[in-house]
């Protein structure tokens, strides 16, 4: 039986290959009780494969996954974990209530316990007034919320959410954030994958940046930014097509070009003037300049040379 002494999740050197493609390449991590843990990375980084391995839907080639000290495939681990898949994995011709009842029964709930769980989920997802509406007739945001509620019907202690805001309008996204923050207040451990850095910054205590199946950085948002940039700030410069700097000049100034923008870092704002004067001397035409505090997007860019949403 899982005990409260064990961590909700412990992954050791996990590897998963699909043919010649290595989707997860030796990932190790731990998630503490009550922690909200983010997996941030671009599409195809291996986040979903990692989540699906944890819930037993993918069989790893090697490595170990322990849920509260028990192997992930054990019944006790399954009971302790809730999973919100990226797809809308609900029955479209059933109502919200019927969907929750079905998934509750699949988890072994019955009678009063089931009814209470359904009531809690409907309340949590703000679907109580649409409980008897067939899913096909619900809005996109409501379907997403039902999709999340179905993953929590058996009241797990840890929930894995795989990009739950995909295709959701901004208003519904805010509501989903509030739902997740509600779970955090209740002390539930949340593992959250996303390729939106603002979601990771808002919802997660610690973040693992994942790329090509590996964790390339791990820590709190501030730790990640500090380890990549220290106290430096980021300057993004757009040059005119006719007067772009060459690779040698970029390298000399510690810059890199991503999607038509040149990115530099400066310790003091005054360094911007030096940078721009140098560019002017070379005849490079500057269109606009922005100075900002580095964020997780900048960290990813700094570590991989690519943007998160590429």
């Amino acid at each position: 039986m899982p005990t409260h002494n064990h961590m909700p999740l412990r992954i050791e050197a996990l590897v998963k290959r699909f043919g010649g493609v290595t989707a997860v390449d030796g990932i190790s991590l731990e998630v503490k009780a009550g922690e909200s843990f983010g997996l941030l990375g671009p599409n195809g980084a291996g986040k979903s494969t990692l989540i699906r391995s944890i819930v037993g839907r993918v069989r790893p080639n090697s490595g170990r996954i322990l849920v509260y000290g028990e192997p992930a495939e054990s019944p006790s681990a399954r009971a302790a974990l809730g999973w919100v898949p990226q797809e809308l994995a609900v029955y479209p011709r059933l109502t919200s209530r019927e969907n929750l009842a079905a998934f509750g029964r699949y988890h072994g709930l019955a009678g009063n316990e089931l009814q209470q769980a359904i009531a809690w989920c409907l309340e949590w997802a703000a679907l109580a007034d649409r409980a008897d509406e067939v899913v096909n007739r619900l809005s996109g945001g409501m379907k997403r919320r039902l999709n999340m509620a179905a993953g929590l019907i058996h009241r797990p202690r840890t929930v894995l959410m795989d990009e739950p805001t995909v295709g959701v309008d901004p208003q519904s996204r805010l509501r989903i954030f509030e739902m997740i923050e509600g779970l955090r207040r209740e002390g539930m451990a949340v593992i959250y994958t996303t390729h939106y850095m603002e979601e990771a910054e808002r919802l997660c205590d610690r973040i693992a940046i994942v790329d090509h199946g590996r964790i390339i950085a791990l820590g709190t948002s501030d730790e990640l930014i500090h380890s990549a940039f220290g106290s430096r700030r980021e300057v993004a410069v757009r040059f005119a097509d006719s007067g772009e700097p060459g690779a040698a000049w970029m390298e000399q100034h510690g810059g890199r070009r991503v999607n038509g923008m040149a990115h530099f870092t400066v310790e003091q704002p005054a360094e911007i003037a030096t940078l721009l004067q140098g560019a002017a001397r070379q005849g490079f035409e500057v269109l606009d300049v922005t100075l900002h505090r580095p964020n997780l997007e900048s960290v990813f860019l700094h570590l991989t040379g690519r943007e998160l949403r590429e």
Binding site: R57, R78, P85, Q86, E87, A89, F103, H107, H154
Partner: peptide, 10 residues
């Protein structure tokens, strides 16, 4: 994806 969700239960 419903099948995956069902199979992740009991």
């Amino acid at each position: 994806g419903t099948l995956d969700r069902v199979l992740s239960s009991r």
